[in-house]
Every structure is written in structure tokens, then in C-alpha cells.
Design a protein around this nucleic acid. Structure first.
Length: 430
RNA sequence: GUGGGCGUAGCUCAGCUGGUAGAGCUCCGCGUUGUGGUCGCGGCGGUCGCCGGUUCGAAUCCGGUCGCUCACCCCA
């Protein structure tokens, strides 16, 4: 075991048993919902110029400062495995001049993301996200639409007991002023704060709201709230978002302590959590990021989006019944000791290619009993036996559902396929 | 990075106070049978994570190390 290679720390193999439900989440639940809401699929590179995240997500964030997989390529360019999807989508928006398209531009994506953190329940180094970004409009209805989209997605996936927390971070200027005020407050109470909160007062004081440390939480209860400091316009925008959520009958909790760890967020921020997830309770979250596109070299552009973790959604949905990959093989070709293997192989390919059937042939040297067992194990409807018992027949076609079997003799190179195929098709259709 | 729990067969696990490894499931074969199910019998499969120490003898005790896992932190 010691020298056996294994998947890198924090990564996992998606085995056949679980790939079915993962695919279903993306293809049967997410994709149709996005299509109905006017979102188009976008795929950005798995790695990007490191500067994209440094600038877009923020140098001081944990994600950028200590969790990125960054390396130099052969040309000494610093590249980074994408830790999140919003910055790349905004880069693509700016790079391809999407501001010239009818606004807003709605995009969705799905794929792996990378963060070098200590793995634990619900947290991986390579994880999969489904995300949605809508750029080019700051209409509160877009915020509401985006949030409702995620709410419905979670519901459809089976994560029905989630909680939505929502708040507004206001605009940059108020946030900066508030940040100063909060720093002062924290300094006044620094004796009760935990060491790591204390160490980050200058970097990101808002983080203190997230701490689980008791003393810190006591201090934060009485701390000034950003939601009380935002501008009249931002407050009106936020109230409109809430009103639309009410209209959509999406329940929420306004939580003025809600903090997001990425620098680009402005105004609306939200997060869905699930009680059956352990410490990493967030299943999905996001917010508005007016200004990000401009920061990345594009025109001033409003934007809002979210991402949800595929592994977390699935865990929150508590899919108890692990559906075995439904076996739906049409034909299984069994080989007796004296089978004409060449003829069997030809029939196998023709059944697949001419008749479009799913056909498998014996490949493991099993006994006839073992081959029968294998055929029923993979759900074959029809069995073709080549060889026959002691040469009593050249081939036999057995309907595995009814048990009836027809034996064919005198097969010649010219007509064996048609005669077998005729009987196979009759059996498959039944 | 820090702390708790755990590393025995492909999977789930047993193995008390030290005597050089077991079960169930899976897989393969044989018999039974309705060519597949059931049942019966048999087989494949492990340097007990790794290294060192104590001992006549270590899966078991001690130390170290690696890995997994949960939590802190952070986030999806």
C-alpha cells in the first residue's frame, strides 16, 4: 500500500456508481433550467494567467494569498489553476467584447475548480461547481432572477431544506468608510478577539463576523453593521430585490453579518446553507460584482452571479438510493468452446453498427454458466450462443426474458448474419 | 499549518490481556437446476500503511513517519 499510487490529497475519482447522478444534476436539472432563463453555456480554460485572479479576486483574500495552485509554464509565464469561475467569465466578457451584445449577457458553466486547502467534509482541492453569471445590468430583477434560479435548482436536485441568507454590501465607497469604523471598533475590543481575527484586522475586518470564537462573537454582536451604512440608492436596490423574492415566494433571512471572502462583491450578496452538511454548510452562494469587468480591462459593467458546489448539492440532497447504473444491454454474445470466433465478432459489430443495438461479447473466458450469469447481470435481453453443444447447432438465439431458444444450423458466410439478426431483433423488440 | 479519530483481502469489518491472519459481500470454478435464480462445495485475493524499538516471538506493546478522516481557518 505504501508505494501504491493514489489520487492526490483532496481529489477523488468519480466512479461509475456516482457519475450517473452527477450527470443528471448538470444535464437534466441545471441545463434545462438555464436554457429557460436565457443562459448560454460558456467554458473557460482550466488555467489562467495568475494576474487574473490576483487582480480580480483580490491579493489579500485567502483564496489568492494561500490557496492557489500556481506554477510557471515552459515559457516562464505564471499560470494558476482556476480557483473560482467569476473572474474568468468576466475576463471572457471583456476579451470578446460581449458588451456589444444585447444586455444582459447570461452565461453558465460547469467544471472543476482548484483550491489548495486542507480537505475535510465537503471541501476538496479539486471540486466541481455549477455557476451562473449575468453581466450588463444592475436591475434588481436580475438579482432576484439569479437567486431564484439557484433556489429552484437546489430544490429540483432534492436539497429542499436549505436556508437562504442575504444582505447588501453597498458600494465601494461606503464599504471603505465602514471598514474604517469597524477597525476602530475591533481595536477597542481587541482583548476579547481571537488571535487570527486580531491578526487580520487591517487585512479584512469584515471576516470577524464569520468567526466561531466565542469572545469574538460576543464582540461582533454589538458591532456596527455594514447594512446600516449603505447608501440610500443601494438600500432601495436591496429592498427591491427582497420584494421580488417575496413575490417569488423564496424564503430568506436578511443577515447583516453575511460576509463573502472574495473582494469583488458589491451590493447584493447571498448564500444557501444546508443543515445536513457538516462544517462546510454552504451549498451555493454569490452576489453582485459591479466593477469587476472594468477592473479586468473591460468597460464599466454591472454583474451578478453565483456558484454551487456539485459535491455539496449532492450531499445536501441526501440521495439515499444509490441508483445502480441501469443495465440496458440488448444483446450478449456467448462463446462455446468450439465457437467460430470470427463469425461471432462480425455479428457483434453488425448488431451495433447496422442495427444500433448495444451488444457485448464474452471477453473473460467464462464458463457457459458464467456467461449466462454475466448476460443477465448486464441486463441483456437476447443471448446469442456461438458454437453449440457438441456441434448440435452452429448458433443459438435465446430470448432471456421469455427463455425460448432457437437453434440455427448450416450457417454459411453469406447468410449467418441476417438469420441471426432477424431473430435477435425479434427478441429485443419484445 | 494546528488539534481529535482512524489505518488488517477489491468492499464492510473481526482478531480479548503478544504465539508468524479470519468472516461476510464481490469475483471465478464445480455440483444442483430451468444454460441465468436458489442452495451446497471449492478457489482467487493480505509483506496486518511504512520504518525502527522491546521480546524467544509483534497485526497486537512503545517511538517515529506517511496516509485517510473530522474540526479550526476559509469557502462552493
Amino acid at each position: 500500500m505504501s508505494d501504491k499510487l493514489q489520487a492526490p490529497k483532496g481529489t477523488f475519482d468519480v466512479l461509475p456508481a456516482s457519475s450517473t447522478q452527477r450527470d443528471a444534476l448538470v444535464e437534466q436539472i441545471a441545463a434545462p433550467a438555464f436554457a429557460r432563463a436565457g443562459y448560454s453555456r460558456i467554458d473557460t480554460p482550466i488555467f489562467e494567467d495568475t494576474a487574473l485572479f490576483a487582480r480580480g479576486v483580490g491579493e489579500s483574500t485567502d483564496v489568492v494569498s494561500k490557496e492557489m495552485y500556481t506554477f510557471l509554464d515552459q515559457g516562464d509565464r505564471s499560470v494558476t489553476l482556476r480557483p473560482e469561475g467569476t473572474a474568468p467569465v468576466c475576463r471572457a466578457y471583456a476579451e470578446h467584447g460581449m458588451h456589444k451584445l444585447p444586455q444582459p449577457v447570461k452565461l453558465w458553466y460547469q467544471g472543476p475548480f482548484f483550491r489548495q486547502e486542507a480537505p475535510q467534509a465537503g471541501r476538496f482541492r479539486q471540486f466541481f461547481q455549477i455557476g451562473a453569471e449575468a453581466l450588463g445590468s444592475d436591475d434588481p430583477a436580475l438579482d432576484a432572477e439569479s437567486i431564484v434560479l439557484l433556489a429552484r435548482l437546489l430544490e429540483a436536485a432534492g436539497a429542499t431544506d436549505t436556508t437562504l441568507r442575504i444582505s447588501s454590501l453597498g458600494s465601494k465607497s461606503e464599504r471603505q468608510a465602514y471598514s474604517q469604523e469597524l477597525k476602530t471598533y475591533l481595536r477597542e475590543n481587541e482583548r476579547q478577539l481571537s488571535a487570527d481575527v486580531l491578526a487580520r484586522i487591517d487585512q479584512n475586518p469584515l471576516r470577524a463576523f464569520d468567526a466561531k470564537h466565542e469572545g469574538t462573537q460576543a464582540v461582533m454582536e454589538a458591532a456596527p453593521r455594514l447594512l446600516d451604512a449603505i447608501s440610500v440608492e443601494d438600500r432601495a436596490h436591496f429592498d427591491e430585490v427582497l420584494a421580488l423574492l417575496d413575490a417569488a415566494q423564496v424564503g430568506y433571512e436578511v443577515d447583516s453579518t453575511l460576509v463573502r471572502g472574495l473582494d469583488y462583491y458589491t451590493r447584493t450578496v447571498f448564500e444557501f446553507t444546508s443543515p445536513n452538511l457538516g462544517a462546510q454548510a454552504g451549498v451555493g452562494g454569490g452576489g453582485r460584482y459591479d466593477g469587476l469587468v472594468e477592473l479586468l480591462g473591460g468597460p464599466p459593467t454591472a454583474g451578478i452571479g453565483w456558484a454551487c458546489g456539485v459535491e455539496r448539492v449532492l450531499a445536501a440532497a441526501e440521495l439515499s438510493t444509490e441508483p445502480e447504473p441501469t443495465a440496458n444491454t440488448d444483446v450478449y454474445i456467448a462463446l462455446d468452446d468450439d465457437a467460430d470466433r470470427s463469425a461471432a465478432f462480425t455479428v457483434l459489430l453488425k448488431l451495433r453498427e447496422v442495427h444500433g443495438l448495444s451488444a457485448q461479447i464474452e471477453l473473460a473466458g467464462r464458463s457457459m454458466k458464467g456467461q449466462l450469469k454475466q448476460a443477465s447481470r448486464i441486463g441483456a435481453k437476447v443471448l446469442v450462443i456461438f458454437g453449440g453443444e457438441r456441434g448440435q447447432y452452429d448458433a443459438a438465439v435465446k430470448n432471456l426474458q421469455t427463455g425460448e431458444q432457437q437453434e440455427l444450423d448450416g450457417l454459411t458466410a453469406g447468410d449467418y448474419f441476417d438469420r441471426i439478426a432477424e431473430r435477435v431483433l425479434a427478441g429485443v423488440k419484445r
